[in-house]
């Protein structure tokens, strides 16, 4: 299975990652190897899988869900304690002019 540079770039964009040209060159053979590893399952499941709806192997049954109880949420000052918060907000650089 060969992976083109363009495919890597698309996946990187979807993953919110970026790789330099040099990194990409190193990454492609590694990635091809891991895809080949994953590919071992192909050929084992015969036929069309489109009829399979339940793909979540671990689902929680509806009746297992707890009651929706209102409880105190964590205080703002705790939640923002990992950044230099401004008026209780997470600061980012201005995005709207």
């Amino acid at each position: 299975m060969s992976i083109s540079q363009k495919e890597i770039q698309t996946l990187a964009r979807l993953s919110r990652l970026e790789f330099s040209e040099e990194e990409q060159e190193k990454f492609i053979p590694d990635f091809e190897e891991i895809i080949a590893f994953a590919d071992r399952i192909n050929g084992e499941v015969v036929g069309d899988t489109s009829s399979i709806k339940e793909v979540a192997a671990r689902t929680i049954a509806w009746e297992d869900l707890r009651e929706d109880e209102v409880t105190d949420s964590l205080p703002n000052e705790k939640i923002t304690s990992n950044v230099e918060a401004q008026d209780g907000y997470f600061p980012v650089r201005r995005v709207v002019k």
């Binding site: 399952i41 192909n42 084992e44 499941v45 899988t49 399979i52 979540a56 192997a57």
Partner: peptide, 11 residues
């Protein structure tokens, strides 16, 4: 379909 779904079936 080719990977994730099949992996779940095989799981």
């Amino acid at each position: 379909d080719a990977y994730y779904k099949k992996a779940c079936v095989l799981r």
